[in-house]
Computed example of a mutant assay.
Amino acid sequence: MGSTSENWGGRATLMVAHCAGMVDLVALPVWVGVLISGYGLDPQQAGGLATLFLIGAVSASAFVAPRSNRMPARAVVTAGFAVAAAAFGGVGLVNDYAIMALLHLTAGLAAGTALSLTHAAVGRSGNPHRLFATVGFALGVFAVLFMVGVPKIVTSVGAPALFWTFASVMAFAACVAAIGFPDTRLPTGRTHGTNGKLPRAVWLAAAGISCMALTQAMMFAFLERIGADRGYGTAAVAGVLIALGFVNLIPAPLAAFLQRRLNPRTVLLCGPLLQAVLALLMTQSQSFVPYAAGAMFFAAVMIFTHTFAFGLLAALDPSGRAVGATPAMVMIGAAVGPILGGTIVKLSGYSSLGFAAVLIAACAVACFLPRRSDNVVPARS
């Protein structure tokens, strides 16, 4: 029997592909921190490199998502991760900023292509909400392993080790995809609505998710730097990052458990507000405990909210086009986040990041307010 999103072979492949494609969500604090401390870049330059990766992912997703029904998913996903592996391996071998920028962009284009087809496959499953929660839990496990191991490797080996780690992750995902990426043909009974315009609610939800992703990336990119520059100590900040990884194991399973107990629209309205509160905790306090509390739960809010958003979008558009564009939705905000955050820090300091988060949260809430999606019930398996 071939690999599909309804058997565990296919699901395991989707977990690996999701972890590799969403590596920025896990690694951004370490990524920007290493570029600053290991390569001597200023916050704006470091944020700019991360932004180039995300711009590449956004561009690829925007191109791939409308065509995902017609693409040979296994071959394209395998090739995408293989190219990303080569690009990140190249970053670990050079010091020239222009070459690093080109390789970051290339890695983003390749990984974004693979991730878009991965999310399209998840969206065409029998229960997209639950499967997205499953791959989200896998990302949480990956985050713990990453935060426990990679900073120590970078300290021992040097800054390039971070990019060699990225290359290894992408190469592993390419091998797994080549062996077992699932059949992404639409299940019987879900072939309607594969053409034509997407509902207005889809576009508004996408804009709201992008706003949340902007806040996530803007804050998350400088989470480690805020702690380090305020003198909390390397060990304490590293402990926060590890604790953050363990906390991130919770939101995806919790979102799956609460799938039919919470109204998706309520979750979408509350998510940006909680993001803003945690951002203020991190940036306005000069003591460690509020900073640590905000930092540990910050990414969890995005994971939990995005799981409900993914299930809702899959119900609004059964073709998988909308959820196939998930990397574009998430990363168009995330692409702006690091360089916007770096610019704000450079001009006004870390405290200004919290006020920017409040303004962006207001925009996200405005996008999620329309009621057209209220009657949509996620598919049951």
Rank of each mutant, 00 (worst) to 15 (best):
I242L: 13
A243I: 15
A228V: 12
E224C: 11
F220N: 10
A276C: 04
L254G: 06
A217Q: 10
R261E: 10
T283M: 12
A213K: 09
N263Y: 11
A213S: 15
A213R: 01
R260Y: 15
A236C: 06
I250V: 15
L241N: 14
A292M: 08
G196I: 09
V289T: 14
G239W: 04
P264E: 04
V277N: 07
Q259V: 10
M302H: 11
S287L: 06
A201W: 01
D229N: 07
A213L: 14
V267R: 00
F304D: 02
V301S: 07
A252L: 05
Y232W: 13
L254D: 12
V247A: 15
F220V: 06
W203Y: 14
A293V: 15
V237A: 02
A221M: 00
T234G: 07
S285M: 10
P272G: 05
R230K: 08
A207R: 04
F257W: 15
R261M: 06
F220T: 10
Q286L: 11
L204I: 05
C211E: 04
L278W: 03
A252Y: 09
C270F: 15
P272F: 00
M296R: 03
M282D: 00
G196W: 08
G294V: 00
A243V: 15
V247L: 05
A201G: 01
K197Q: 08
L214A: 00
V240I: 11
V277L: 12
Q259P: 09
A236F: 02
I209V: 15
L198E: 01
S287G: 11
Y291H: 03
I242W: 06
L281Q: 01
A207F: 08
P253E: 03
Q259T: 13
